[in-house]
Every structure is written in structure tokens, then in C-alpha cells.
Design a protein around this nucleic acid. Structure first.
Length: 595
DNA sequence: GTAGGGTTAG
């Protein structure tokens, strides 16, 4: 029998643990006559690698109980095991370490990075007596992931200035940051550089390059890089799918998706997001169903996309079904999912459920508050919308964004709080550093017009730095009508007429004005005029959901498969109404209202 | 013989 020394015992223990054979590894460790620090450490890190953090910590205690002193490597492993649950304890262990090398410093740095505490991470980073490429890359990658791409690039530059050669991880993180910034030119420079030093074939670097070209709208270049990758992993496939998805090439995306043999959750999500971005909501649900059938469990990203599709279709039934699924997986309170739920319920008109979802979220971000404030305003709960906004200002450090201010103006306008609304409108730039856009102006014009301050509304229209929206003209005109401001009405009508000659929006407005007055022949005339002059109007579309299927009806293009039958039913309804109400019904206007 | 970092989807 060969004699085993302490080195071979440790190698054996570690070998078993690394391939997941925990019981065998522990059994060998139990028989090991040389239980030195190496072998204990092998067990601790092996257990951690198998996801048995608690057991690993138990072994650490046992080791201390046996009087074996931990070394640098043991500390790094222990910190790795403690960092997520007990960061303070990990820090204490680190403080007590005799000799701290660059790896242990990086381990503690990474702990803060992992926790998302970039301030503390930066402090550790600055205090480190020595940094290597791993310490740099931990910082660079997290800055980039956290959306602080500028800082990531700054560090990357600083690193090169400090004479450290970036490894593949640093390059991929830096390219990732450049992709976020859509800095194609600099990205291309790095591409040339990594090609020159023979690192372009690295799968991490090339995946980032695929992302860079995709993010900048260059799918062909992204594909060129993708095709050169030798050992493609699932992430680079997903990145390429996203590149196609985000550039409206869904057919290519789907083709690639079908070629992946081992699909990950990211593969499904890339496709779902693509269809969502392309407003192909039926496909979103189709892929979601296929995903469930394939046995893949949806995650936060999937749910927020699918809920967003429900919101866009205002499909309360479907949305509730998805809500149930998030509940089963315990994801309903997550900040992304919760926000999507708030938005879905609000857009579908179920404001009570929306409020409930919002109140149950333990963490809320800017988007969550925006969804709630906007939802309340658009559902006619103007005062509550303003209260929620004030609560946000009082309890959080979130700065109001364009959309929140729009909702606030909308709310003020609808509760008749003209002065308050105007105060917000006038202080947008000075207080919140947001330049009012045409939509904000429309709200302000609407506010003034509704309150009878029509001439002020007109003045505001004239002073706009951007072109007024059609709705603003409509608001002004309706103010004139309500308050009998004939002079302004005349000027406004002339202006609209003038606009109508120039662009399609004017004609749409004109036809809408006629429609609201019930002057159908004029509406038809205007539309005909538009057609003759080659002006296009986005066709109006409405839909209903029947037994899980969506039926779409376009205002100008009657293409529904059961069109003849539908018209038949309408005829029946018409004659029924004629009998019941003894009244003439114009089938044309009836159809117009229904479709 | 024991240890640290990275690419996609919201």
C-alpha cells in the first residue's frame, strides 16, 4: 500500500468535494491522519462550492476548536461564506487576520461590491496597500453593472495608467461599460487592441463586443464577432439574440433561439424582451407559454416583461393570472415585479389592486413611484396622486422625473388646482432641473383653458420653445368654446387650418374636432383629403379578449376573419334597436364607434 | 494540497 502524505490526503479530499461528492470527501477527511490547515481549508471551500455555507461555517468552528490556526486562504474562504449573511462578522474576521494579502483584501472588497455598497467598496479599494487585476476588475464590473459606466471607464483608464495590464475580465467589463454608453468609437479601439494582443477570442470579451455592436445598432458587426467565437457558451448566444431583438430583427432572433440546445433562463428572456419591445404581445405570451411547457421557471425579468405586455393590452384577466404565478414563486414583492404589477393594474383600470401591490412592496425605486403616481392621476384619483407625490418627496431621496411631473400637472389640471399646477410647471427647471417638453406644455394649456384663463393659455402656446402638440390646440379650442372666447377661437381655428395644410396631425385634429361635434360627413371629407395628399395617420386600433385570444379591429383596414359575421350581428342589432327605440340609427356611425 | 474577478435578459 502506497504511503500517503498530508499533500495527497488534501488532494483527495478536495478532489471529491470539487466534483460534488460531499459524503465521500467528508469520509476521506475523517480518516485523514494529518488534519492540517490545508486539509481543513479544502473542506471549508469545498462545502462552500457545493452551496453548503452553514455546514462550512460549522467545520470552521470545529477547526478552531481543534486548535488549528487558520491561514490566509482559510480566511478568504470564510469571508466568502459569511459575506452574504453576516458581513459585519466577515469584516471582523478580516480585521483579525494577521497577514492580509492582496487576495484577502480583494475578498473583503468583493463582499461590499456584492452587497451593492459601492461607497464602502471604494473605501476598501482606496485603502488597499496593493491591488491586482482582480481587485480592479471587481470595481470596474460593478460600476458598470450599477449603471455608473463613466466611473467604470475612469477606473479602467486609471488602471492602465498605473501600469497594470488588464486581463480578460477587465476588458469585458470595460467594453460592457462602453456598450452602456453607446461609445462605439472607443469600443472599436479596444476591439482592435484585444485583437492585436490575441485576446479577442476570449468568450467573455467577445460576448461584450457582441453586446457593444448590438447596443449601437450594428447587428451585422455583432454577428461577425459572434461567428468567430470558438467555444460558444449560452451567454454569447443570448447576447446575440438580444442584439437582434433590440434592433427589430425578431425573425433572426427566433432563428438563433431555436438553434440553442441548452437554453438558459436568459435565452427565454432575451426573446420575450425582444417581442415586448416590438409590441408583438401575442408572441410574448406564446414564448412565455412555451417556456412554461419546457419546464423552465420564469424569473423576475420574465414576469416584469410579461406583466408589461398585459399592461399594454390592458388585459386584466391575463395580468391577474400572471400575478398568481408570481405569488406562487414568492416574487410578487420584488421591486421589478411589484412595479410591473402596479403598472399593469393601473393601466387596466383596477386602481385598488394597483395600490395594494404598491403598498406591499418593501423596496420601491423611482420607476415604482412613477407608476403609482401616474396610475392614480390617469385613473381620476388626482388628489391621491398628489398626496403620493408629496409622500415620495417627504420620505425618499428620489428626484421627480419628467413622467412624474407630467402626472402631477395632469392631476392638478383634473382637480382644478390651477395655481398649484402652475407652480410645479414654472418651477420644473429651477427646482427639478427638468426642461418642460411639449407634453408638459399641453397639460399647462389644458389647465389654464379648463379654468377659463383662455388668453393666458393662448399666450403660453405662443411662447412655447417647441412645437405644440395637437392636443394642446384641442384643449385651447375647447376652452374657447366653454368660456365663449370667440376671438381667440377664431385665431386658434385659423392657426389649426394653417397647420392642417402642413402636416397630418392638423388634419387628424380637424377630423377629431368634427367627430366630437358629430359632423361625420366632414370627418370623412377630411380623411379623404388626407388620403389624396398622401398624409398618413396611424390607424386607430381597438381589441377585445375572448377566451384567451385577442381580436384586433383597425379603424381603416377591416381585416378581421369573422368580419362578415360581425357586420351581420351589427345589422341585427341595428334592426333590434330600430324596433325598440323607434329611432333612426346610422349604421355608419355605429360601426365607427364600435371599431 | 487550500483562495479572489468577468459576458446576456428587467
Amino acid at each position: 500500500m502506497p504511503v500517503r502524505n498530508e499533500v495527497s490526503w488534501t488532494a483527495l479530499v478536495s478532489g471529491y468535494l470539487k466534483c460534488g461528492k460531499v459524503d465521500e470527501g467528508m469520509e476521506v477527511f475523517g480518516r485523514n491522519p494529518f488534519r492540517d490547515v490545508f486539509s481543513w481549508t479544502a473542506v471549508i471551500s469545498g462545502l462552500l462550492g457545493s452551496g453548503m455555507g452553514l455546514r462550512a461555517m460549522g467545520v470552521f468552528k470545529e477547526m478552531l476548536g481543534c486548535g488549528v490556526l487558520p491561514n490566509n486562504v482559510t480566511f478568504v474562504s470564510v469571508v466568502r461564506g459569511l459575506r452574504l449573511n453576516k458581513p459585519e462578522m466577515a469584516r471582523r474576521v478580516f480585521e483579525r487576520m494577521g497577514k492580509k494579502d492582496v487576495i484577502s483584501w480583494t475578498a473583503i472588497l468583493d463582499m461590499y461590491v456584492e452587497m451593492g455598497d459601492m461607497e464602502e467598496a471604494r473605501r476598501v479599494f482606496n485603502d488597499m496597500p496593493e491591488r491586482n487585476e482582480v481587485s480592479w476588475s471587481a470595481m470596474i464590473s460593478r460600476y458598470s453593472q450599477k449603471g455608473n459606466s463613466v466611473e467604470a471607464i475612469k477606473l479602467f483608464r486609471q488602471m492602465i495608467e498605473n501600469g497594470i495590464s488588464p486581463n480578460s475580465s477587465c476588458f469585458s467589463s470595460a467594453i460592457n461599460a462602453l456598450a452602456n454608453l453607446k461609445a462605439l468609437y472607443t469600443g472599436k479601439n479596444i476591439h482592435a487592441h484585444v485583437t492585436k494582443i490575441g485576446m479577442a477570442s476570449d468568450v467573455f470579451i467577445s460576448s461584450s463586443l457582441v453586446d457593444l455592436y448590438g447596443s449601437c445598432g450594428y447587428c451585422t458587426d455583432a454577428r461577425l464577432v459572434f461567428d468567430t467565437i470558438q467555444n460558444k457558451n449560452v451567454v454569447c448566444w443570448n447576447t446575440m439574440i438580444s442584439a437582434y431583438s433590440s434592433n427589430d430583427q425578431l425573425d433572426e432572433a427566433k432563428k438563433l433561439f431555436d438553434q440553442i440546445t441548452m437554453k438558459s433562463i436568459g435565452s427565454w428572456n432575451s426573446l420575450v424582451t425582444g417581442y415586448l419591445g416590438n409590441e408583438q404581445y401575442d408572441k410574448v405570451f406564446e414564448v412565455f407559454n412555451d417556456m412554461l411547457l419546457s419546464g423552465q421557471t420564469p424569473d423576475i425579468s420574465t414576469f416584469s416583461s410579461v406583466l408589461c405586455a398585459c399592461a399594454s393590452l390592458t388585459s386584466l384577466g391575463k395580468g391577474k393570472g400572471i400575478h398568481g404565478k408570481t405569488f406562487k414563486l414568492g416574487l410578487q414583492r420584488d421591486v421589478f415585479v411589484g412595479t410591473a404589477l402596479v403598472d399593469m393594474y393601473a393601466k387596466s383600470g383596477d386602481i385598488e389592486s394597483s395600490k395594494r401591490a404598491f403598498s406591499k412592496m418593501p423596496e420601491k425605486n423611482e420607476v415604482s413611484w412613477t407608476a403609482m403616481i401616474q396610475g392614480l392621476a390617469e385613473n381620476g384619483h388626482a388628489e391621491e396622486s398628489l398626496e403620493t407625490f408629496e409622500e415620495m418627496e417627504r420620505t425618499t431621496s428620489i428626484k421627480p422625473n419628467e413622467l412624474i411631473l407630467l402626472a402631477i400637472l395632469f392631476a392638478c389640471s383634473h382637480c382644478g388646482l390651477v395655481n398649484k399646477g402652475l407652480h410645479y410647471f414654472n418651477s420644473m427647471e429651477s427646482l427639478y432641473n427638468i426642461k418642460p417638453n411639449e407634453r408638459h406644455y399641453t397639460c399647462a394649456v389644458d389647465m389654464l383653458s379648463r379654468a377659463g384663463r383662455v388668453s393666458e393659455a393662448e399666450k403660453l402656446m405662443m411662447s412655447m420653445p417647441c412645437e405644440p402638440e395637437v392636443n394642446a390646440w384641442a384643449a385651447l379650442l375647447s376652452g374657447c368654446k366653454t368660456y365663449g372666447e370667440d376671438e381667440i377661437a377664431e385665431r386658434t381655428a385659423a392657426k389649426i387650418q394653417e397647420l392642417a395644410e402642413k402636416k397630418s396631425g392638423g388634419y387628424v385634429l380637424l377630423s377629431n374636432v368634427y367627430a366630437s361635434a358629430g359632423k361625420w360627413p366632414e370627418v370623412m371629407k377630411t380623411r379623404k383629403l388626407m388620403k389624396e395628399r398622401g398624409l398618413k395617420k396611424t390607424g386607430g386600433c381597438s381589441w377585445i379578449e375572448v377566451r384567451n385570444e385577442f381580436h384586433l379591429f383597425y379603424s381603416q383596414d377591416a381585416t378581421h376573419i369573422d368580419l362578415i359575421e360581425i357586420y351581420g350581428v351589427l345589422e341585427l342589432l341595428k334592426s333590434d334597436m330600430l324596433v325598440r327605440f323607434q329611432q333612426k340609427v346610422d349604421i355608419g356611425s355605429l360601426v365607427n364607434r364600435m371599431i
